[in-house]
Design a protein around this nucleic acid. Sequence first.
DNA 1: TATTTAAATGTGAACGTTCACATCTTAACA
DNA 2: TGTTAAGATGTGAACGTTCACATTTAAATA
Lengths: 342, 342
Amino acid sequence: MMRAKKRVTIKDVAAEAGVSYQTVSRVINNSRRVTDETRLKVMGVIEELNFRPSFAARNLSSQRTNIIGLIVPYSADYLIRDPHLLAQISGIDAEANANDYNLLLSTAGNSEDGIKAYNRFLTQKVADGAIVVETANSTTGNDMLAKQDDPYVVIGYDIFNSNGYMAHSDDHQGAKEATLHLIEQGHQRIGVINGPATGAIRTSHGRLSGYKVALEMAGIPFEPELVVGGNYTRLSGKRATEQLLALDTPLTAIFALNDRMAIGAIQIIQKHGLTVPQDIAVVGFDDIPAAVDFTPSLTTVRQPSRALGKTAARLLFKLIAGKSVENHEVVLPTELIIRQSS
Amino acid sequence: MMRAKKRVTIKDVAAEAGVSYQTVSRVINNSRRVTDETRLKVMGVIEELNFRPSFAARNLSSQRTNIIGLIVPYSADYLIRDPHLLAQISGIDAEANANDYNLLLSTAGNSEDGIKAYNRFLTQKVADGAIVVETANSTTGNDMLAKQDDPYVVIGYDIFNSNGYMAHSDDHQGAKEATLHLIEQGHQRIGVINGPATGAIRTSHGRLSGYKVALEMAGIPFEPELVVGGNYTRLSGKRATEQLLALDTPLTAIFALNDRMAIGAIQIIQKHGLTVPQDIAVVGFDDIPAAVDFTPSLTTVRQPSRALGKTAARLLFKLIAGKSVENHEVVLPTELIIRQSS
DNA sequence: TATTTAAATGTGAACGTTCACATCTTAACA
DNA sequence: TGTTAAGATGTGAACGTTCACATTTAAATA
């Protein structure tokens, strides 16, 4: 790990090219105001000396880092089970790359770590802005964000900041379509495996309201006993399904608010000797890779995960650039994917 | 986006506390050489003024950023299908957090982006070091890394740098155990769905050699026709299985070098009206979440993904700290998980 | 050709720390 | 009580850029 050899700086380039170092700075930053001739000369020297601008010096001087922070309040074991997240990250990363931004990641498992990450990212000016992925187990920490000056965007709903910026899919519409699809198939008694009472509340709310509106449209009365709580894990889907199957009046379809719970539901239904979709139809939400791999393959509402990431990033870049953004809430359309389970 | 209010600096704190700003610096950095009394006083003022050190200024002065770069040469659509990666990232992130390091991510899809990421991360000194996740489709770009001074660690094999540092699981041993397990079950003709001829070559090589050694131990001759190429996707597993099923002398077991191909294999076997494991047993490698969800659940070799991430990060931190690391290659043990498919 | 104007380049300061070194203070010893 | 050494604090410089402004140069106008 020898350190030794001195770094090539903007001044070395300037000396070699016979210009002031500020001119070199202009060349680096593609500023107008430079003759093609000098630009070419400087770029030649840059190449020759293999000059690379110092990230730190740039940051200090310009007061920007070209880094955006990504705060993902996931626990490690949960993380591995959510393919959507990677798609979102990939979308954010692609957009960041395109805009010459770097992506700083924190998979802060608990709220304390989340606050630590938030501190590092924004208060210390490591990042120019942040994207927060709202998850089922994220509540704490986000409220800290609402209190500070730097721009941030929530993928999901920003329940702590009425003036916040967010991007999410059309949960209401997606759920409505899914429910209408089941109704079209002749189902009247449709159970719902709901999200948890805490965490990403508005996601569940949106989907549940979509379900209710669909019932209303079909003139089917809403029955509270058909809605059972889950927490977006497969296990909770299983438990909820046991409850639903134990109802006095049997149901003919289940709408789970995400795919993992839907898969859990199918497993329990099959365990009870029933067939999907003949005895009970099942519809999920998300369209994770497992949805198509599973037997029977899962009818589900596809979320545009990658687009969500891109959208959030684009929104954030606008905010960082100081452009005014009129629309604080970007809602992306979902798509009903009909497969075997319904 | 008003900027306006001036940042609280180390000098403001110093003035308020009645000490020199260098002393404040000492307090921030937990340097010895400070009386408890002044330390307390300074910390009080820091709290009072809500001072947060400037990341950029620190970087410039100390010539370190406390950032490590993570280069993941994945294409976006592949990314979402690899749960292992998230586990590795989570391990790296946890270790980074513990050491007050930040994690800069690049999911550079193609080689050009990869080189761009490498440039940003290391040449511009955005990061103090990097972790590269070797993947099936990563070859280009890594050779650039070998040529530079800053420390980096490969998760997988560093085929471009004979003096490089790497962390990976014991592919040979894992494959050997998997094959021996099949042999113990009475199988003699065991097909292999191999990795691709390019990309993460040494991973496949290690696993294949484990398979061969197991055969040798059992006195079973190796037959090249039993080894068919794949590229770690489910689709390629399906194709390979079609080939294997078409062999003149039928086989009774298939060892796929990863889980996704194993799942593809099972689907094709079932499509041919055969049963797993009665007609043909299947073993995979990785232990992705789907392995246990699938019916029949998949016997597989579990990789310690998260530990791999942690190990790589620890190794990198040692290198960054300038400590000499004797062992360039850390090999982590795998675990055979026996389930229904064998 | 003299004059105005715009574009190109140069100048000095600032960004907020850490580091190596100099000086001051305090306690321990003779 | 004077001397010494260690520990605590202060000092100046350096890290490598960008920014606002000043100056020079070249082009356009009268």
